[in-house]
Simulated assay, not measured.
Amino acid sequence: MQRRSLLLAVACCGVGVWFPAHADGLSALESFLRQTQQGRAAFTQTVTAPRKDGEAAPRARTSRGVFEFQRPDRFRFVYTHPFEQTIVADGQTLWLYDVDLNQVTARAQQEALGQTPAALIAASPDLRGLTQVFDLRNAPDADGLTWVLATPKQRDGQLQWIQLGFRQGQLAALDILDSFGQRSTIRFEAMDTQPGFGAEHFRFQPPAGADVIRQ
């Protein structure tokens, strides 16, 4: 269950757009929101748990996969390593398919994504819409990236904060801290911004025989 809640919390998207080299993070984010309509990129995600007493170092695990999205409200995460899982938002429903369990969980998309990275990036056309849900500010440059810090205005959700890192016009990283102290860092590879998704690309059909749970 912990693995599933984390996957839902980090459902997100990223893609490259051009902006001047001197632009700050908020300018880069606004350009991204206005100019990018769809994309596909491979990603690597590292999740670090809070260090427990007696541990020499925090526990970390790494997963990999492919992310796709189409504005305003469709996206797909396909995790391929170490576990096969798929998260699909089709505009109405958020689907999570766990291959090992042969189990599908379905939730109303609007309710599930209210204060997640997906809501921050994929669903809003500009910064004005985001400021209704998040407090946004520029964060210090680090690791060669220009950063934006987004803090949910409602503090009773799963997230403490989200940071978005841009490099040369591309959203290159997400850094997410949840309410349990787990930190998730997602690094995107080069984004294909013209994948030409068809009308049915983000439709999800539960596999035959899968256990479907609707929440």
Rank of each mutant, 00 (worst) to 15 (best):
V47A: 15
G144F: 15
L127W: 05
D73A: 15
R107Q: 12
G54C: 10
T44A: 15
P58I: 14
Q132C: 07
S63P: 00
G39L: 07
R74V: 04
D126L: 11
V133G: 02
L113K: 00
Q70H: 07
K52R: 14
L149K: 11
Q35T: 13
Q37L: 15
R71G: 04
F77K: 02
W147N: 00
A60C: 13
A60P: 05
V99H: 14
G25P: 02
P72A: 09
L96Y: 13
L130D: 01
I121S: 00
P72V: 11
F32L: 12
R64F: 06
R76E: 07
T62R: 14
D73F: 11
A56C: 04
S63R: 06
F43S: 02
R59G: 05
D53C: 06
D90Q: 11
E84F: 08
F69R: 01
P72N: 05
F43L: 09
Q45C: 10
Y79H: 03
W147C: 01
R71Q: 06
L149E: 14
A118E: 06
F75Y: 09
T116R: 02
T146I: 12
D53H: 11
D73M: 06
G129F: 01
R64N: 13
E84K: 14
L33I: 08
F134M: 05
R59E: 04
R59N: 06
A123F: 01
P50I: 15
G54N: 11
G129H: 07
S63D: 07
D73S: 10
I87K: 02
A57S: 09
A139Q: 04
R107Y: 08
I121C: 03
F134L: 11
R137P: 03
V99A: 15
A41I: 04
Q45I: 14
Q35Y: 08
L96I: 12
D143T: 03
Q85K: 04
W147F: 10
V47L: 07
D98P: 02
A42C: 07
T86D: 02
L33Y: 06
A108V: 09
R137A: 08
F77V: 03
T62P: 02
P117V: 01
F134Q: 00
R61N: 04
L29E: 03
V78E: 13
A139Y: 06
T48V: 12
A28N: 09
P140I: 12
N138M: 11
A112G: 09
P140M: 14
T131C: 05
D135S: 14
A106F: 09
G129Q: 15
H81S: 07
T151Q: 05
V88P: 00
R64G: 11
P140K: 08
A106C: 13
E55G: 04
A41R: 00
F67C: 08
R107T: 05
V99F: 13
